[in-house]
Design a protein around this nucleic acid. Structure first.
Lengths: 345, 345
DNA sequence: TATTAGCACTCGTACTACTAGAGTGCTAAC
DNA sequence: GTTAGCACTCTAGTAGTACGAGTGCTAATA
């Protein structure tokens, strides 16, 4: 028996060890496996196999006479092996479809609700990480004249995001001029990303040569105040994750990590390109030492303008991957469908 | 020495015990107090005093030969005693004033930033609990015609809250009719609370006798979709609270409690009337058993229309009350000032 | 060559026993 | 009212021990 690939029996046993550990959070030993699973081999043979799996890095044991627990490589194998049959049961799917009404009227609220849904069904912590401003495309701007010095600006992106802001001007502007300005901006800026809009808006107005000072002021303030969307993170079900603190008290560092958003931003930018498949990041695969005992199951979602965000769940490394992957997969597909609808309408 | 009120020396010693416990999280005994604080009495006298304080319910000791720790009543005394000189140092005040730029352009974002600020300076978990819809007063509605069947509705409350929503109609509506509808609603609904608006909007349109079916549809959808604001809770600095889990793992239950919002809603409705003073809720004073080891320091804030919300921090019962009270006080006054500005402008 | 039984060995957990020390409460003297 | 002295109590920490789960190795077996 040389190292390298695993034969069927080894796979089977590896999966048993992992599933057992996921369920019980305890190491399991050869004797116990023999007793509980009807493998037609003795515990001695099993020990040989386990030793081999350990030699190849799939398992480890915390001390000499403890049973085996999976390594990250072990989990990785398990998850990859699983990935094919990640299907929700019909009941679950119906439950998900029927049991939750997502609000389609406001993108932000919708994202929040999706993250709630993720937490609800997974029993871990759900997150939705919104799209980065480089990818969001401007569609339409409305400037509403509340008074000569008070303008309500509302813009809509191609993905259906709506942002509003109250703008206070130093120099008064007339209704007529406001309309003019609005038309110019809509004509000039359509199709730009929000970041570009922010950079260009002042110049566009200047170029037009209609250099009323109030135009320039408004353009400047619009750029500063409204075209300034940022990545947002919706986290729901935080208490769920707390119940898994188990051995170490590193939960705190996880939340610090999440609050910084850097990690999710990194994943979004580097790990998800076009495909919208569910991806699993196990323990140290996340590159952050704080994530040592945790895994992320996530998928990208697309808004109407093809910008991408990230959604998924964070849970302990020993999570029920098969269930969770199926759930995240389902919800991400649901999210994409919902977002398409927002766009169409 | 009969029970009842505390004399100066007793007060002094009570405060020493509490401060010590706040700093070290350990019981302290008579001998130690004598050694470290220059009281001109022996440890035996001290023991008599401590026993007396315990008899009166200000202190307790977890077991026979442990030192004393404060009870809720003890903390309460300490905090009430403190309340007078809750002043921020000049440096701190300047730091707070200079170090943080609150965004004044969007109420929701502002509230979120305030809660971040609370967490940042207190090192505990900051919260801002927004106003209940019964108290928010309608000011202005804009209906923006995007297409015949697609309306962007934006409304502004007297407190400066802006809400928008995209409305999809079954029956097309013309620009002219939309304007008409908008005018009617603005005339009829000004001064109502949002809850009332929601109840009345359909009737108001009906009463006008201009019963085009598209008017009724729009009125109905407006009521359903946009005049539907709810209490919101901004929580920041969750990791901070996790580092205080100490003895028991009840942090989880705290967060479940917070997610439910009921407690804060209760406080807001029952404990804060007109005055905008900082209030401290210690341990079981909160009525929720989960709060046993935690305290809330909070203050009400007012938006322009005199509706009220709650802000503050949640931290371990043994927190640095004097510092925290001063900070919450300062930030709540700052918030009120900011909100006044929003209104004025 | 793969499988198995047998067995010595390892190490962590759980339990017990013991000690040191911190702190109390009481008493009697000042 | 204050203080010194002292017996008493209880915890935290340490050490010792027994148990048992599990391993890894060896030699026999199919």
């Amino acid at each position: 028996m040389f190292s390298g690939l695993l034969d069927e029996r080894e796979k089977r046993i590896l999966c048993i060890v992992i599933q057992n550990y996921i369920q019980t959070a305890r190491p399991i030993g050869s004797e116990n496996i023999c007793k509980n699973y009807n493998l037609k081999i003795s515990s001695a043979t099993l020990r040989n196999i386990l030793a081999n799996l350990e030699k190849n890095g799939y398992l480890m044991h915390p001390y000499t006479s403890a049973g085996r627990i999976p390594t990250d490589k072990g989990y990785r194998f398990y998850v990859d092996d699983l990935e094919e049959n990640k299907q929700l049961s019909v009941q679950e799917e119906m439950l998900l479809a029927a049991g939750y009404k997502i609000n389609k009227y406001e993108l932000k609220e919708m994202l929040m609700q999706i993250s709630q849904l993720l937490s609800l069904v997974s029993h871990y912590t759900g997150f939705v990480f919104s799209v980065s401003p480089e990818k969001v495309i401007f569609k339409h701007l409305k400037l509403i004249h509340l008074s000569n010095k008070k303008i309500l600006a509302v813009f809509i992106t191609q993905g259906g995001l709506i942002e509003h802001r109250l703008i206070h001007l130093q120099l008064p502007i007339s209704v007529k001029n406001l309309k003019k300005m609005c038309k110019i901006l809509n004509d000039e800026l359509i199709g730009f990303t929000i970041r570009e809009v922010r950079q260009e808006i002042f110049n566009k107005i200047k170029e037009q040569g209609i250099g009323y000072r109030e135009f320039l002021e408004l353009a400047e303030k619009l750029g500063e105040q409204i075209f300034k969307i940022k990545e947002e993170l919706y986290l729901e079900g935080i208490p769920n994750i707390l119940s898994f603190s188990e051995d170490d008290k590193k939960v705190e560092s996880i939340f610090r990590l999440l609050e910084e958003r850097e990690m999710l931003s990194y994943l979004l930018k580097n790990e998800f390109n076009e495909k919208e498949k569910v991806k699993v990041f196990i323990g140290n695969e996340n590159l952050y030492p704080e994530m040592d005992n945790w895994s992320i199951v996530s998928a990208a979602y697309k808004t109407g303008d093809c910008s991408v965000g990230l959604l998924g769940i964070i849970g302990p490394k020993r999570m029920e991957y098969s269930r969770i992957i199926a759930e995240v997969d389902y919800i991400s597909r649901m999210a994409n469908k919902l977002l398409e609808q927002v766009e169409e309408e």
